[in-house]
């Protein structure tokens, strides 16, 4: 039994480099691997790292056509309502980052052809920081930020 598993693992890791490794990891804990969940981006501890894992580039042009609706002062960092709306054509994805959280990437929305460039949710913020929205439209990547002052952090115990 152990030997059989080892065979699979070897086969997996030999087959195709990083993909093989992902597959073999998937064999060991299949429930934890989702097709679209970008583990590298979500586990990244710094904003540029998360951004490059998500959209493939560390920089994005600042664009005023992205509107971020969030409170200027959040009394409770555990629940900060954030709404992102973009006046850009052909938006394919919207991502929300809280720059000073331990893992800055909070949510990534993949939009289907009928979806409007709009996403709204509630996020946790560890401390006062910029909330950044990154919008992808085809090959172009845009960003915009808004500072939210947090009086009580929402990530600690």
């Amino acid at each position: 039994m152990i030997d059989a598993k080892r065979r699979i693992l070897l086969k997996g890791s030999l087959s195709a480099g990083s993909i093989g490794v992902a597959v073999s990891a998937g064999l060991l804990s299949p429930r934890l691997v989702l097709a679209d969940w970008n583990e590298a981006a979500f586990k990244a501890k710094e904003m540029p790292e998360a951004l490059s894992a998500l959209v493939g580039s560390e920089s994005a042009e600042r664009d005023g056509r992205i509107h971020i609706k969030a409170p200027d002062i959040a009394e409770n960092g555990a629940v900060v309502p954030v709404t992102v709306e973009a006046e850009i054509d052909g938006v394919t994805s919207i991502a929300i980052f809280a720059e000073k959280n331990q893992t800055p990437l909070i949510a990534a929305f993949e939009l289907g052809p009928n979806a409007m460039p709009f996403a709204s949710t509630r996020i946790k913020m560890a401390e006062t920081a910029d909330v950044t929205a990154v919008v992808k439209a085809g090959d172009q990547v845009f960003r915009n930020s808004r500072t939210v002052k947090v009086t009580i952090g929402g990530c600690g115990g």
Partner: peptide
């Protein structure tokens, strides 16, 4: 039956999550 939006989240989304989106049609 058609996928309008897929959201990927981290633990940074608040407890008892709220989500809103819009689509044409």
């Amino acid at each position: 039956g058609e996928v309008v939006m897929t959201a990927s989240w981290s633990g940074g989304v608040s407890k008892n999550p709220y989500l809103s989106f819009k689509f044409a049609g």
